[in-house]
Design a protein around this nucleic acid. Structure first.
Length: 387
DNA sequence: TAACTAACCTAATCAGTCA
DNA sequence: TGACTGATTAGGTTAGTTA
C-alpha cells in the first residue's frame, strides 16, 4: 500500500540493533515449514504453537515466516494459488490466538512507553514484556495498533516519527536519541525467564487454549486421541488450565489433519511415548537473545539452543515422512482414499492412522546440560560468570 | 556483490468485550 | 449496538546471510 512507501521507504530504516536478531532457519526447519505451508498457508494459533515447539523457534517467528512465505508465493505466481485463501470465503478453519487481556496497569506502562517511543526496538519491547508480563510479540502488536489508532500521541514528536525523509533516521542524524537504539540499561533486564517465561509464543492462556481445534479432532475420540503423521506427534504437558472442565467440547468438523496434534487439553496425562517430541522446555529464543549492544555489532552470538543438532537425520526423516504421508513428495495429488477423507479443507490431508509407527526417536536434547548451564550463566543477572 | 529472506512497517479488516 | 482494541492479513521496505 502506499503507506509503506511513506514509512519504510523513506524513512525508516530502523536503527541497527533495534531489530530482533535475525533468525537463521536451518534447512530442516525450512523444509518442515515448507511442507506444512503446502498444506495450510494459514495455520491457526494452535498449529503455529505446535510447529514452533517442533522446530524449537518462537511462535511469532513461525507466524512471520508464514506471512513472508505467503507473500513470496503470491509474488511468484500472481495467480492466487490454490492453497491461498480465496478471498472472503475460505476461513482458515483454525482459531485465532485468544484475545490478550491487557489490564489497565499494563496499559499504563505501555502507554508511557509509547509516549516516549512509538517504535521500540526489540530490547525495549522485551523490557516492556518483562515489566508487564505480556509476551513481546503481543507488545509489538500493541504498538502497531497504537500507532495506527493514536497517530499523534507521542511526547517525542518528529523524532519519533519513523518515516522521515531520505535521510531520516538512518542518516545519522539523529535517530531520535535514545529511542531507536537499545538503551544499554535495558540489557541487564533481558528477562531470562520472566513472568512470561513461557516462550514468547505463549500468552498467558496459550498453553491452555486448544483453540486449534476443529481440524485436529479425531472423530469419535472424545479425548482427541493423537493421531496423524509422526511429524506432529506432540505430546504436550497439559496445564491445569487446559484441563478445565469448562473446556469447550470439540466442535464438529472432524478431520484429522496430518499433523494432527493432541490438544493440550486432551492429551492424556503426561506420558512421553517413544515417539513423543518433547518441546524443549527451555528459554528458547529468550535465552539466547542478547540485547543488542548499542553499537550493533550483533556478533557474539549466543549459543542458540538448537533443538536438533544438524548432524541428526531427524528432520529429514520427519519431513520425508510428512511428505510421503501427505503425498506432497511423490504425487502432489491426494490419493483417492485421502481425497475421500479430505473433506473441505484443501490442505488437510487426512491420514489419521499413522500412529502405528510413531516417530523415530526424534527426541533429542537440544542442549547438553553443560551447554545449557553455560547459557544460563551468560544471562544477565545470572550468578555465575559465563563460561 | 547480488539474491534471498527474516524482521519490521502501515493500512485495512476481522472479531471479542463491554458499556 | 457501537466503541474500543487485540489479532490477522496483504503488501511494501530494510537489512542480515549466504552463495
Amino acid at each position: 500500500m502506499a503507506s509503506s512507501s511513506s514509512s519504510s521507504t523513506s524513512g525508516g530504516p530502523i536503527a541497527r540493533g533495534s531489530r530482533r536478531r535475525r533468525l537463521v532457519l536451518k534447512l530442516s526447519q525450512k523444509d518442515t515449514l515448507q511442507a506444512l505451508f503446502q498444506q495450510n498457508p494459514y495455520p491457526g494459533i494452535a498449529t503455529r504453537e505446535r510447529l514452533a515447539r517442533e522446530l524449537g523457534i518462537a511462535e511469532s517467528r513461525v507466524q512471520v515466516w508464514f506471512q513472508n512465505q505467503r507473500r513470496r508465493r503470491l509474488k511468484q505466481s500472481r495467480s492466487p494459488s490454490a492453497n491461498m485463501r480465496q478471498d472472503g470465503e475460505g476461513a482458515p478453519g483454525e482459531a485465532r490466538r485468544k484475545r490478550t487481556a491487557i489490564s489497565p496497569s499494563q496499559t499504563r506502562i505501555l502507554v508511557q512507553a509509547f509516549t516516549r517511543d512509538r517504535f521500540p526496538g526489540i530490547a525495549a519491547r522485551e523490557e516492556l514484556a518483562r515489566q508487564t508480563g505480556i509476551p513481546e510479540p503481543r507488545i509489538q502488536i500493541w504498538f502497531q495498533n497504537r500507532r495506527a489508532r493514536h497517530p499523534q500521541q507521542s511526547a517525542r514528536g518528529p523524532g519519533n516519527v519513523r518515516a522521515r525523509g531520505p535521510g531520516g533516521a538512518s542518516a545519522t542524524t539523529a535517530p531520535a536519541p535514545e529511542d531507536r537504539r537499545a538503551p544499554p540499561a535495558v540489557h541487564s533486564t533481558s528477562p531470562p525467564l520472566g513472568p512470561s517465561q513461557t516462550q514468547e509464543s505463549m500468552p498467558p492462556l496459550a498453553a491452555a487454549a486448544p483453540l486449534g481445534a476443529p481440524t485436529f479432532w479425531v472423530p469419535g475420540t472424545a479425548s482427541g486421541v493423537c493421531v496423524g503423521q509422526p511429524l506432529m506427534f506432540f505430546v504436550i504437558q497439559p496445564s491445569p488450565m487446559a484441563l478445565q472442565p469448562s473446556e469447550k467440547p470439540p466442535p464438529p468438523p472432524q478431520v484429522a489433519v496430518p499433523w494432527a496434534a493432541c490438544s493440550p487439553a486432551d492429551t492424556a496425562p503426561w506420558q512421553p511415548g517413544p515417539g513423543a517430541i518433547l518441546p524443549p522446555l527451555q528459554p528458547e529464543t529468550h535465552i539466547r537473545r542478547r540485547p543488542e549492544s548499542p553499537v550493533g555489532e550483533g556478533t557474539a552470538p549466543l549459543l542458540e539452543p538448537q533443538p536438533h543438532p544438524p548432524s541428526l537425520p531427524r528432520s529429514t526423516s520427519l519431513l520425508d515422512e510428512l511428505l510421503a504421508a501427505t503425498g506432497i513428495l511423490e504425487t502432489q495429488a491426494p490419493s483417492a482414499g485421502d481425497a475421500a477423507d479430505a473433506r473441505d479443507t484443501p490442505w488437510s490431508s487426512p491420514r489419521a492412522a499413522a500412529d502405528e509407527e510413531g516417530v523415530e526417536a526424534i527426541l533429542e536434547a537440544p542442549l547438553r546440560e553443560e551447554d545449557y548451564q553455560a547459557l544460563l550463566d551468560m544471562l544477565p543477572g545470572s550468578p555465575g560468570p559465563r563460561a
